[in-house]
Design a protein around this nucleic acid. Structure first.
Length: 350
DNA sequence: AATGCGTGGGC
DNA sequence: TGCCCAAGCAT
């Protein structure tokens, strides 16, 4: 049967060519699997690696994470993006700590009740963390399945996605499920590339639909993408006594939980600079999100001004290393750490 | 059901 | 440079 050829070949390939020695591999630990799976969502391995190592060093098990200061968790995640993942990770750790006595649930139903754990992450936890049968469906799996079996359903629609899940269920073996699961991800990442699939070294080549019909580049069906809007933003950073005033994002979903300057949208409106003493430190810094692009200007503002009531906390240069900052704010932080007199202009002007 | 949510790397 | 993509999930 074709599905047996598929899984057998992958398992055999994995023993010889699969990725080994990644920081989250080599243990049977639902916790490590969980953290790695969350961290790797929509992220590449090389990017997540250093974050994972530091995270596990700080929070080696569910209990330490559950008892951690949320501020520290956000700081350790800062720079990785998709910050809801970090908030949910912390929240789920608390639930496992308080309601499950620090023991991970080992059923799909219980796992997906935890915030941030969906069907695929739950499947990975079962497969890697418990060595049980678990089914996953991520970008790699979709690409390999669509090419090998010739699946033209659109995974971005519910019905298409459902079909992919059915296929993934059908081909996932019970025996050596963890090896198979790692194999299909690894072959997707290292052989069945999006743009340059290495079909000549692929163990699935002889029975691959896409290879037979030379349609690798048409599979899987791509999502239509809208061009992201460009917005102009003004970052206002009040400075006083060598400290900067920051606000914690809570109304906007972008960067929620992180510390930011006062952010003003100047795409259409105009900001009145006439009554403040300021210094323009960044102009047109481009920051690209998935769904929008920001052109950022940043000014340091030296009080007195009427911005004080918008500030949630004042931080000195060193304290900025201890809190969660989004990427552009990390850039700004490095600027003012490097050019320290920026924060002491107050002394000259008062 | 379609959209929102970060960031870095490859070409 | 701009565009595509990468171990998804929540709403």
């Amino acid at each position: 049967m074709l599905s047996h050829f598929f899984s057998d070949q992958l398992i055999q390939w994995q023993h010889q060519y699969g990725r080994k020695g990644l920081p989250w591999q080599g243990y049977q630990s639902p916790y490590l699997t969980w953290v790695s799976e969350i961290m790797l969502q929509q992220t590449q391995v090389d990017n997540a690696k250093p974050y994972f190592i530091r995270f596990i060093k700080h929070y080696p098990n569910v209990q330490t994470l559950a008892e951690a200061n949320p501020e520290d968790v956000m700081r350790d995640w800062a720079g990785l993006g998709y910050y809801a993942r970090a908030r949910n990770l912390h929240l789920s750790a608390k639930i496992i700590h308080q309601q499950h006595n620090n023991q991970f649930p080992n059923s799909i139903e219980e796992l997906i009740k935890l915030p941030g754990i969906g069907r695929s992450t739950a499947g990975a936890i079962l497969a890697f963390g418990f060595k049980q049968r678990g089914v996953i469906l991520d970008g790699n799996v979709k690409r390999v399945l669509s090419r090998f079996f010739g699946i033209f359903n659109n995974p971005h629609y519910q019905r298409g996605n459902h079909f992919y899940w059915q296929v993934s269920h059908l081909v996932t073996p019970t025996i050596d499920c963890d090896v198979y699961t790692q194999a299909i991800m690894d072959i997707g990442a290292t052989v069945c590339h999006v743009k340059t699939p290495q079909c000549q070294i692929c163990p699935l080549q002889s029975k691959c639909y896409a290879e037979h019909y030379h349609c690798q580049h048409h599979l899987p069906i791509k999502k239509l993408k809208k061009k992201p809007k460009t917005l102009k933003k003004l970052f206002i950073l009040p400075v006083k006594s060598g400290k900067v005033g920051l606000t914690r994002q809570h109304t906007s979903n972008i960067w929620k939980g992180l510390w930011c300057p006062i952010i003003i949208d100047t795409t259409t409106s105009v900001f009145d600079f006439s009554h403040i003493h300021y210094r323009h430190i960044i102009k047109d810094l481009k920051h690209v999100f998935t769904h929008q692009t920001w052109k950022i200007d940043c000014i340091l503002v030296y009080p007195p001004n009427d911005l004080h009531n918008q500030i949630d906390a004042w931080y000195d240069i060193h304290q900025l290393d201890q809190i969660g900052l989004p990427k552009p704010m990390q850039t700004i932080k490095e600027m003012i750490q490097y050019e320290k007199n920026l924060l002491h202009e107050t002394a000259e002007t008062t």
